[in-house]
Computed example of a mutant assay.
Amino acid sequence: MENQTKLSVNINKVATLRNARGGDMPNVLKVALDCERFGAQGITVHPRPDERHIRYADVFELKPQLTTEFNIEGYPNESFMKLVLDSKPAQVTLVPDPPGVLTSNAGWDTIKHESYLKEVVAEFQANNIRTSIFIETDAKLIENAAKIGTDRVELYTESYATDYPKGKEAAIRAFVEAGKIAQKVGLGLNAGHDLSLENLRYFAENVPGLLEVSIGHALISDALYFGLENTIQMYLNQLRNI
C-alpha cells in the first residue's frame, strides 16, 4: 500500500559532513541512491550560494541518477534559477532565505512579493517544473499563494515542532486550518522543518491533504544511531496507515 504522504529525504547534512573534511566521504550521490533503495520517495537538496553543504555540482551529479522525485529548495536569485532550469528537477521549492542565513527561518510574504513570485513561478512552470512556496500558516498568505499560481505550498513547521512537547493539540491547530485553506483554494500541500520521529505521525494524521514531507536534520541524526535503512523505514512507518 502506497503511503498517502511521501517522504523526501533532505541530504544537506550529508554534504555538510563531507565538506568538513574535504574529499568525498560520505559520498552524497551514494547516500541519495541508498535513500531511494531503502524506500524514500524523494530526495531534497537546498544549495546555498556559499555551497557550504550541497554544491551546484552535486545537483548535476544527482539529477540523472535519481529515480524518485528530485526537489531543489532555495532562494530564487539569478544563479539558483539558472541551476534549476538547467537541471530540471521534478519540483522547486522557493524559500525566502537570504545569503548567510544558518537555516530557513521564515516563510514568504506572498502579498508583499506577489509580482516577483508570479514571475518566478511562471518561468519554472513553463519548463515543466512543479513549484512550491515555503510559507507560514497565515490564511491570507496561503490564499495569495493560489493567486500567484504556484502548484503547492510547503508549510514551515518549526513552530509546530517547538510547541509539540508543550501540548500537541495546540501545536497542530494552525496547521490543520492551513491545510483546510490550501485544499479550499486548490493548492497541493507539503511540509517541512524540524519534523522528527517524535512529532511526524501526529502531524500527518491531523493535517488534511498532506502530500509530502521533507526531512533532513532529524532523519540524518537518527541514522547515526539506527542506521540509514532502518531510520528511513522508521519514518515511513510514521506515515503508513493514516
Rank of each mutant, 00 (worst) to 15 (best):
V59Y: 12
P99A: 11
G107R: 06
K140C: 01
F80L: 06
N128P: 01
N105L: 04
E177P: 00
P98Y: 15
D34H: 08
S221L: 03
K147A: 02
S196K: 09
Y164D: 03
H193M: 04
G107N: 09
S79P: 00
N71R: 09
D97M: 02
S8H: 12
Y225E: 05
T44F: 11
G186F: 06
F226D: 12
Y116E: 13
V176K: 13
K184C: 00
L85W: 13
F38M: 07
V213W: 14
E177A: 06
L236M: 13
Y160I: 01
F175S: 02
N27G: 03
E114Q: 14
A15F: 07
D34G: 01
V120T: 11
L102S: 14
L83I: 01
G179Q: 05
K140W: 02
V9E: 08
T150Y: 12
N190C: 02
N206G: 01
N19E: 10
I242T: 11
V120L: 06
L228P: 13
I54Q: 10
D24N: 12
S221E: 09
G179M: 01
A57L: 08
K112M: 03
V14W: 14
A145F: 07
K118L: 05
L29R: 14
Y202H: 13
Q4R: 15
G39I: 06
M234Y: 05
I129Q: 12
L195P: 07
T137K: 07
L197M: 11
Y235M: 04
G23I: 02
L200K: 08
E229Q: 15
I11P: 13
I72P: 10
F175H: 09
A20C: 04
Y160N: 03
G107V: 00
E212T: 05
F134H: 07
K82P: 00
P165W: 06
S8G: 15
I129V: 10
D86M: 06
K118R: 15
T68I: 04
N206R: 14
P89V: 02
N12M: 02
L228M: 15
K140F: 01
A191T: 02
Q238R: 15
T150V: 07
S8Y: 13
K6R: 14
G216V: 08
D24S: 04
N3I: 02
T231I: 05
T157Y: 04
E177T: 01
A191K: 05
A15V: 00
I54E: 12
L117A: 03
N128H: 15
L200S: 05
F134V: 00
V9P: 07
Y160P: 03
F226P: 05
Y164V: 00
K184M: 04
N144E: 07
Q41G: 14
H53W: 11
P165H: 08
N105Q: 09
P26R: 09
M1W: 11
T5Q: 12
R52H: 11
A178I: 01
L219P: 12
I43Y: 15
P99E: 14
D58A: 03
I129C: 10
E36I: 07
N77R: 05
Y202F: 15
I54T: 09
I172N: 04
